[in-house]
């Protein structure tokens, strides 16, 4: 049964959450965007990625940690994103919903 406690996700949010999962603990702006570009073929600006990451963080679906500075002069710190338990739950639910909706259908690209 659908879990009422987790909010529903938009397409962009799902993509970003999946990309964060794929980055496996090393998720920040550039690699998240790169994953989406490579796998989904969608070119997003970093701004769009930030917007989504921040929104997901506000919703409590992502948690963040600040990395240590890079080991070189002027090395910067990164804000790394990770899925929270509600985040995982929301993602599962969204994927399952899509799955259920699609089950038994053949989606043709032409005609009705």
């Amino acid at each position: 049964m659908p879990d009422k406690s987790s909010p529903s996700l938009g397409e962009l949010e799902s993509l970003v959450l999946l990309a964060v999962l794929r980055c496996d603990g090393e998720a920040y702006g550039v690699p998240v965007r790169e994953e989406i570009r490579r796998r989904a073929g969608r070119s997003l600006t970093l701004g769009t990625v930030y917007k989504t990451l921040m929104r997901l963080e506000t919703k409590g679906l992502l948690t963040t940690t600040i990395s240590d500075p890079e080991p070189r002069r002027g090395g910067r710190r990164r804000k790394l994103y990770r899925l929270s338990t509600p985040g995982r739950r929301a993602l599962q639910r969204t994927l399952a919903t899509l799955d259920r909706m699609a089950k038994g259908l053949t989606v043709a690209t032409s005609g009705r």
Binding site: T45, L46, G47, T48, Y50, K51, M54, R55
Partner: peptide, 15 residues
């Protein structure tokens, strides 16, 4: 420059 503009815009509207 393009990325900077997009980042400034989105970050501002989101927070």
């Amino acid at each position: 420059a393009r990325e900077a503009l997009a980042a400034a815009w989105h970050v501002h509207r989101t927070l």
